[in-house]
Design a protein around this nucleic acid. Sequence first.
RNA 1: GGCCGGUUCGUCUAUCGGUUAGGACAGCCCCCUUUCACGGGGCAAAGACGGGUUCGAUUCCCGUACCGGCUACCA
Length: 510
Amino acid sequence: MNRKVRVRFAPSPTGGLHLGGVRTVLFNYLFAKQNGGDFIVRIEDTDQGRFVTGAEEYIFNTLKWCGLEPDESPIHGGPFAPYRQSERKAGYRRYAEQLVKEGYAYYAFDTPADLDAMRIQFKSAENPSPQYNQNIREKMKNSLTLNAADVSKLLAEHVPHVVRIKMPLNETVSFTDMIRGEVSFHTSQVDDKVLLKADGMPTYHLAVVVDDYLMKISHAFRGEEWLPSAPVHVLLWKYLGWEADMPQWAHLPLILKPDGNGKLSKRDGDRLGFPVFAMNWTDPATHETTTGFKEKGFLPEAFVNLLAMLGWNDGTDREIFSLPELIEKFSMERVHKGGAKFDYEKAKWYNHEWIRKLGVKSLEFGVRSEFEKAGIQITDGVLLGKVIGLVKDRCTLLPDFVQQGAFFFQSPGSIDIDAVKPKWDDDRNMFFTELIRAYALSTLWETHDLEKEFKELAAANQLKPGDLMLPFRIMLVGGKFGPGVFDIAAIIGKEETIQRIKHTLQLLQL
RNA sequence: GGCCGGUUCGUCUAUCGGUUAGGACAGCCCCCUUUCACGGGGCAAAGACGGGUUCGAUUCCCGUACCGGCUACCA
């Protein structure tokens, strides 16, 4: 096979895009870009009952934030438009009809009530969930059990019906999965899935095969939850006569919840206090907002990096990769078979690493907006750059910059006076009073000058600098945190430094 | 229940038959730091179980157990 690599991400727009979805996008994207191929996004909106306004737009915003731009999609356009299955509705029926004509599928006229009745009737301890399969179909109302005349009549009267695939009696369907190797299924164990719904829309099963064929998809990657229906898809490729064009499959392992077992859901994030969606998602019906990684303060570089490492590694100890590096190193063969529990602590570590790795310039925009969100307007860009450089090593998430650096832009909102009081005495009071005088006369205002002066003054008063630096820090930043005290004093300047010392001295007098 | 998939430290993972089973996150200890971090050093921590195959199995095969996914006119 020597055709162009074309992969697709096919989400159904029903809500926020969660971790697993973005990882599927990422693996698709990496594989496509590595092979000089195309990355297509196709919207699988065949279930009109589940339409959610804003969900599609959200998906594209998310991809943009992650830097995973599609080559073709409903909004990017492309030679195989339309890319929304709802807009391709008219095209599917003929394939379903073709399958019926050739004996690979059949019409079924059972109503939803009939199906419910069937499930109740055949339900037993050994078979808790009866399927519409090769045994049951003999007992149902379909073009296999009805005579031709009746079928024609029902069809002519437009009686609601679906088209179901007719699973062969006794065959083994197998295919080679890029991650799992050969996977086999016995057709007697697979049910007669609906291909075309009564409303004329295809189900996922038909649509995915038809569109992957029409859009010349070369490799199909999706979550492991699709494995059980893979034999249906493989058979469809064969029955439609497209076997030679069938894409290579890869079923990705699931991302599991950190505690217990089971796949990660939005609820787990709410429960355990971490994001699951890539970006904030507001449910249009309930107006409930679910926090995303972006809004939580993650960098897209870190988000992509941590997602890639959930189930893949390059075979070395290396853990930090940029997107271009991932494109170069990625390989589907090195993707794990087993699911991975999501570890939020590790996720934060990736972000911390990226904050450290990225230069001041790359962080500026994000940090500035965090300050603005906190009500602090940044007017001095040079100052902002200095502050970022000084505190970034101690920031894990973007909002940490506010906590670590707000005092550079405004006087501390509160002073942790209780941390100073117990050890406060006249000597110290005297020292700081003198310090104000000394600093006021300083002509040099660099870190080391300030430190030197401070220590000389302490020595002259026979005081240990260690007993004075914590109070000084609290005067400048309000609490026991932040970078080196003299760095802070140097940056906020003479006037502000003296002002803050005076302010705390006043507080201590009360 | 059935079908399919999975199984190495608490977590993410390396190992393509021969290793003191390596790394990272988290934890603990020490150093550095006159705040808190960063950083450096160290400790503790794993091949689910039972059979094979083999000179030798974490690695290959089978079985068991456990976990997960699917079992809709949803994707």
